[in-house]
Design a protein around this nucleic acid. Structure first.
Lengths: 220, 220
DNA sequence: AATATTTTTTAGTCAAGACTAAAAATTTAT
DNA sequence: ATAAATTTTTAGTCTTGACTAAAAAATATT
């Protein structure tokens, strides 16, 4: 069954919200991310349920069916592959690609997306470190920690971010925090949980807990 | 002013029709290419006229204003650049790219299309030999002849096609008629105006007048 | 010039996807 | 346990871009 632009967006957003919780997703949460009103969401959820893409009971929230998740994963795959294209091939910065990828993710061509995947050398993650589902919709296993959970003096590598708003990414860029950077937490301030962190063995800089929480790392 | 998907399509199609005639474009002609009904076209033409993108008088047909042409040219530019991308970088054949480019042409990002242009090395023509407008909307001058108008025993090079339906392009491919091929007309049959033409100095093959008419060439 | 044919427009509908305002259900607080 | 606050749904409306059927205008034919 064909999926419209709007339907794909809803499924993608329900998927994103499901990533960080096991609970059913609330109408309001969806409304916020789709930039629509709760009433519009209710309408759409009924339609999606009718098509068998979500399980939805009035007032109970929503969750994707297997079929709905499959569609969502294909949209996510397209979004993330296009982001890699935009950064690696077109020379955009990681904070500039989201809006364009929001458009490109709806291009309908299985052949194109698979050729693009190959052209980009089958990347496992997008420019923010988010995993890219393969052709079959399987996500690569990436188990990252949050920088805010790391002990002092342990070496680690920046593998991704848990948030991809442009302002956040621009801040990271200004601090020279980019994918692959070597990090070591030098001190943790109990007062506000801010930390001082050395980036690629340079003089440590201060970052807030809020920032550290959204940096994903792998211990080396 | 923002342009919708549908509006861009109408403007593009009016532009395409205007390329081959100086007359105003009829409602029916537009309906055929947009795959809609004449009544729907009438509706849209009124809206486009209101926005100042076309000059339209009931029963008199339509023509683009300068502003409308500017929008159409930017859509055509995007369409043709994406076609180059699909063939040169993604490895599609020239008969496979039209539908995908129909989608990609509506992606809205000035920055992206200019980076793409650069990435592709500022191509002057798309995979069918159609000229690509530059950033300013200026078309490169390409004055090609139709193969059907060429005398016998004059050498020429295949520079483009005047029609890009998949079946036509597939026929050309089967005959080894691709962009850049060296051609020489060996005989012209007065009976049906079919011609026999040698391709890259090989044994001549027969092609119909209809095919020859849609092959664009440059004399060498 | 009158009639027939074709083309175009008008009028009235429809579906998708959004909205607001009000009602109903759920959750939180007293 | 009830009242208050919040969330969600319903009901009704709007815009976009399509449709069909009928009317009107333009063009072609005799």
């Amino acid at each position: 069954m064909a999926t419209s632009f709007a339907e794909e967006n809803y499924l993608k957003i329900i998927y994103r919200l499901s990533e960080s919780t096991l609970e059913d997703i609330s109408t309001n949460a969806v409304a916020e991310l789709t930039q629509t009103k709760a009433a519009s969401v209710t309408d759409m959820l009924r339609k999606l349920a009718e098509k068998g893409w979500v399980n939805y009971q009035k007032y109970q929230g929503v969750r994707l069916t297997d079929e709905g998740e499959k569609i969502a994963l294909s949209v996510v795959r397209k979004h993330r592959l296009w982001e890699v294209f935009l950064v690696d091939k077109m020379g955009f910065n990681w904070d500039e690609v989201h809006e364009i990828a929001e458009q490109l993710e709806h291009i309908e061509s299985e052949a194109l997306i698979n050729k693009l995947d190959e052209f980009l050398d089958f990347p496992k993650t997008d420019p923010h470190g988010d995993p890219i589902p393969n052709k079959e919709g399987i996500l690569p296993e990436l188990s990252y920690m949050h920088l805010s959970d790391l002990k002092e003096n342990k070496a680690c590598v920046l593998m991704g971010v848990a948030k991809d708003s442009a302002v956040f990414l621009q801040l990271l860029t200004r601090l020279h925090l980019s994918l692959g950077a070597k990090l070591m937490v030098k001190e943790i301030n109990p007062f506000d949980r801010s930390i001082s962190v050395s980036i690629n063995d340079s003089e440590p800089v201060f970052i807030s807990h809020e920032v550290a929480k959204n940096i994903l790392i792998k211990i080396v």
